[in-house]
Design a protein around this nucleic acid. Structure first.
Lengths: 207, 207
DNA sequence: AATTTTAGTCACCATTCGGTGACAAAGATA
DNA sequence: TATCTTTGTCACCGAATGGTGACTAAAATT
């Protein structure tokens, strides 16, 4: 079997076109408008290929999720920083991680759509993606806990609450301009959120 | 025109059946499965009545939203408490409000579905409902701000972050059991969240 | 060169969607 | 009693959905 790069009749290229079509639709219309017909039309290919190459829409979506690594990368990058940071520098590391997650999610429309999807449908697919991401976050919380005082066993709930707040605000900014007086569609508003994060972390982790 | 309570040919009763069908579907299948056909089937009535009595699905949904008051009631109830509370009691009032919102949202499946809906669709309907709720929350933030130190102008962002965190955790609990090590489907987990809220508020609003 | 495998197009299916017109019967009005 | 309005059922429409079988033609195998 020789591989030819002829523009016609190229299976790999067609498969990639279909995967890319998924991303385009998610960014343009959101995940809820994804369907066999929509993807095939977007890719300018016939929908029967989705069944042949991926076994159906689910398989295609799985391949899509595999290609883009959908988890918060900042966690992994800075995770080890926690280990080698003294108790004093811990606060700034936490702040760096949280603001990093804020900015990363804010910058990735695809990730936003995926997280919304996870929130209202419990697929095998969304479950798998979410599980991977949650594991990263959990590692962070555990790493923090080892550094913290043992008698303070609610630090993970505090982190969870802050991360959740970040997630909600970013996802909410898609459909609303103002939340609790915070401008969700201007850099000024996000600066205020970042400041709030810093202040909470600095005051809470001082005790 | 005499009003008769005959079981057949009763307009008001049929209208109410349609409105109730909306609620049933939202609770059972979520908002995304709401459609003309589904509502009519659930109400055991013909869909043409939805057009005649409500002008369409939108009008029916508006009536549905009007009947149930979809906003966080705790805010309104405790709002005035803020005014007549000294600076010392302020922390406990904030905690009471936040935990109240947590419990209220946790207890209302309908409200959860509605908030999810607001997050991913920008209807005239979802917009109106959201706007009303946001106003209540904003009033609270403003009332707090008046009590607080003027130089601290990020308290509203802190509140917004906490409220957002509460919203996200509750909504996430619909499709996931654990978030950051917090058990979202057990009272124990929510106790931890409440404790985290208390600790954050107590440390932050101490300065 | 002949044959088999593969990539891709096309036509079609049953189902469901939102939406509408026609019609029968019940109730109100005269 | 006769007429008119209202309530509700039914049948249908076009469009879009997910899904499949038949076919053409390119490419690989023999």
């Amino acid at each position: 079997m020789k591989k030819k790069n002829s523009t016609q009749r190229n299976r790999e290229q067609s498969m990639q076109k279909l995967v890319d079509a998924v991303g385009k639709i998610i960014i343009r219309d959101g995940f809820k408008n994804i369907g066999i017909n929509a993807v095939a039309t977007e890719a300018r290919l016939d929908k029967v290929l989705i069944y042949r190459y991926f076994g159906g829409l689910d398989g295609l979506l799985r391949e899509f999720a595999k290609q883009r690594d959908f988890y918060i990368k900042t966690s992994e990058l800075i995770n080890k920083e926690v280990e080698y940071t003294g108790k004093d520098g811990l606060k700034s590391v936490i702040i760096k991680i949280l603001t990093g997650q804020l900015r990363e999610l804010l910058g990735s429309r695809e990730l936003q759509e995926l997280m919304l999807w996870e929130m209202l449908e419990k697929n095998e697919l969304t479950g798998a993606i979410a599980r991977e991401r949650e594991m990263k976050g959990f590692e962070l919380s555990m790493a923090l806990k080892r550094k913290m005082d043992i008698r303070n066993n609610d630090s993970d709930a505090v982190i969870a609450l802050l991360v959740s707040g970040i997630y909600y605000l970013v996802l909410r900014s898609r459909t609303v301009d103002v939340f609790n007086g915070i401008q969700l569609n201007s850099e000024e508003g996000w600066q205020k959120v970042e400041n709030a994060i810093k202040q909470i972390v600095n005051t809470y982790f001082n005790q």
